[in-house]
């Protein structure tokens, strides 16, 4: 999945299922969109669904430093790269 495809998918999920309004790639997820810890766990489940495989516990813990949509995209690309190298 290219970065553009990834971005399109994630923004679509955030708008349709998390009710984000006009999301920007560098918006602070919590301050600008009220995204909380429950949302983070739910989003990880959506990402697993999108990727088609389970994310490891260690990888999930790394997601806790995510603050922006760009962070989400970087995070998924890191996971994809690790998965492809296995």
């Amino acid at each position: 999945m290219t970065r553009d495809e990834l971005q399109k998918n994630i923004v679509s999920i955030l708008v349709d299922e998390f009710e984000f309004e006009n999301p920007g790639l560098t918006d602070n997820l919590r301050d600008d969109h009220g995204f909380d810890s429950i949302d983070a766990i739910e989003l990880l489940a959506k990402i697993e669904e999108m990727l088609g495989y389970q994310i490891s516990r260690k990888e999930k813990e790394q997601a806790m430093s995510i603050r922006t949509i760009n962070d989400i995209l970087n995070y998924i690309e890191t996971i994809q790269a690790a998965h492809q190298s296995q």
Binding site: I38, I41, E42, A45, E48, E49, Q54
Partner: peptide, 13 residues
Amino acid sequence: KSKFSSIGAVDYL
């Protein structure tokens, strides 16, 4: 078995 992850994080809440 893949359905296990379909238990939502908020299902308990």
